[in-house]
């Protein structure tokens, strides 16, 4: 799509959408949102870019190799967090306090919830982008 206004507005909007997505991921445990919502918002920014500017350019921003790494790494982080609590003698996926316990309602509360939310956010964003680019234009591998 070669529309100057659309492309310019998209490029202006993209950082704001991404910041908002990151905010939603980080504040998932304090306000509405979380890994899934935030990850989708993050992914949507790249999808918007791919739709208005160019799919190839979007792939340049987020290449396949990095996508595969992020896909695997984020779920592995999730499982490993579960296994850490296993090694500490607790049941699998027990919430263990990672940060020194601050007062309720601040960012670092909730034990391992924030790392888990971050991993889910990365996973969802990466999956949304990869699915879109692959289904949008089947590529030659």
């Amino acid at each position: 799509m070669n529309d100057f206004v659309l492309q310019t507005v998209t490029q202006i909007l993209m950082p704001f959408i991404q910041v908002y997505g990151i905010f939603v991921v980080l504040n998932g445990h304090l306000s509405p949102g979380g890994g899934f919502a935030g990850g989708t918002i993050l992914g949507a920014s790249i999808i918007l870019y791919a739709l208005t500017v160019d799919v190839k350019a979007a792939e340049g921003i987020y290449p396949d190799e990095r996508a595969e790494m992020v896909e695997s790494a984020s779920v592995l982080v999730f499982v490993l967090l579960g296994l850490i609590s296993l090694m500490m003698g607790r049941n699998f996926l027990t919430n263990i306090g990672i940060f020194p316990s601050p007062e309720t309602g601040t960012l670092l509360t909730g034990g391992f919830i924030m790392p888990v939310t971050l991993a889910i956010g990365a996973k969802v964003a990466s999956t949304v982008i990869t699915l879109f680019t692959h289904l949008f234009e089947e590529k030659k591998s």
Partner: peptide
């Protein structure tokens, strides 16, 4: 269950 999952997650990379 987790070892199978870890194997699956690590295999593509």
């Amino acid at each position: 269950i987790c070892t199978s999952l870890i194997g699956a997650f690590a295999s593509p990379v």
